[in-house]
Design a binder for these strands. Structure first.
Lengths: 254, 254
DNA sequence: CGCAGCATTGACAGGGGTCAATTGGCGTGG
DNA sequence: CCACGCCAATTGACCCCTGTCAATGCTGCG
């Protein structure tokens, strides 16, 4: 089992925040000292329900999760995908009622930190408060790219783009999963991309024919990343993956 | 000329922030004392360019603006619409490079606050820091609703939904504009909704036939708000318009 | 009064949706 | 170890919503 599947605690959160923000060892210790409870959940479990208040901050230690919304007539759209290491709902530190539902996609392991504790921490440490907001604005940036993706790209590019994004994001906080299969059904891909399951199926076949992905039964994996990025019109600017590094060079006067 | 078109300074920002957050008169004075320069811009002016750094915080005093992104082959998607009173880019307080372009839609008047000043303010006043982040997460929430709108609603509902949203948002910070015409071309509506100008035209005609909107030449205005909300499957939960009020009653123990 | 840009319209095409039947994978229980 | 059942995946036929292209009309402005 890769280390990401058996994390020591909120360390994964630490790793994710560190990737985007510069934190002192003191800050890092403060995060590592956060009290939390661990919980396992089955696929499809609802973690936060639309319209309700939420006073805990769940952090994804292993497995995938997502935010989704539904139209009045039952259409479902996944509006954010959460990977190992991702905090699931920093937003509830700032807003009372959830405007969407958060649900597990695979079986997951969570670290649950009380909002109260997290609030205490960010009140005391401005650099951590900043790291939390950086995580929030990067998620917003990803949402904007999804708008472009769903609004202006055809099914092939849309699907390729999503797979590229997952690959790049796993490379940040769950490196050992980068080469593994996607644990996502075609129906979930459809909800992620604003398409239908049937059309996802046709498009997966096309991506396979193009050599961009490899499939084996229900398993999907990247075959040729360059080809995939090419088909997807993919640029990783919106992931802001190198923000912290940029900051470092700026502060050095580079 | 309605008062929103001739504001006294950053007061509109104040009004917007106050709507969502509880601020002491002390905080309010601090905002009112922010140094800023005023600038007028023509329609189509670029305020922030994708990929560049930004060290100012523009606040929209009058007029409309938007964020947009483009695909490699020229497809354009507007990913956020900004109305009078809206801060245009709090995000640049937290991220180095803009992941999108910010541009004026109409002729606008801006109040430009140096990020440095804003940073000083929010460092000194946690309640203002919080108000800034609340604005950021509400914009993110709007983005998620747009994902649902573009991903899962047909052209008629999509367009109706956008018009409903503009109406509700104007009611927050630019009340005098609620009853006025929309200053948006059909091409811009297309970029907002992931459709083509031609189809926007057909859909506007359909909305008019349904009695939901009234058109006069290039002018569009709401005819029957209830009908429009109905066609749009609209619920205002995602605007978090009553957060502050909710908080108040919670703190009162209500 | 003429231009430029936006709006409108029609004909046509195609991407993606819908429906329905079939196949295949896989966990469960006998 | 096999049979069963369930759910995901696959496939084909068909259709419709929306895109595309191109011509024409309108409107505000210099």
């Amino acid at each position: 089992m890769p280390p990401e599947l058996a994390p020591r605690g909120v360390d994964l959160l630490l790793r994710k925040l560190l990737y985007h923000s510069l934190l002192s060892t003191d800050d890092q210790d403060a995060i590592a000292a956060l009290p939390f409870t661990r919980r396992r959940l089955d696929p499809g479990s609802i973690i936060i329900r639309e319209g309700e208040r939420c006073d805990i901050c769940p952090i994804l230690l292993s497995g995938f999760a997502y935010r989704h919304k539904m139209t009045g007539d039952g259409g479902r759209q996944i509006v954010a995908l959460k990977l190992p290491g991702d905090p699931l709902d920093f937003q509830s530190l700032y807003l009372g009622r959830a405007d969407h539902t958060v649900q597990t996609l695979t079986s997951v392991e969570l670290a649950i930190v009380p909002n109260r504790e997290l609030e205490r921490l960010v009140m005391a440490r401005p650099s951590l408060a900043r790291a939390v907001v950086v995580d929030i604005v990067i998620e917003a940036s990803i949402g904007r790219e999804w708008l472009l993706n769903i609004g202006r790209r055809n099914a092939l590019a849309r699907l390729a783009h999503l797979i590229c994004e997952i690959h790049h994001r796993l490379a940040i906080s769950a490196t050992s999963l980068v080469e593994s299969d996607l644990p996502i059904t075609q129906e979930q891909l459809a909800d992620l991309l604003g398409l239908t399951p049937v059309h996802i199926n046709r498009t997966l076949k096309e991506l396979e024919r193009a050599g961009a992905i490899v499939r084996n039964g229900r398993r999907i994996r990247i075959g040729d990343l360059d080809r995939l990025c090419d088909l997807a019109d993919f640029s990783d600017l919106y992931l802001h993956a190198h923000e912290a590094a940029d900051d470092r060079s700026v502060r050095r006067g580079g």
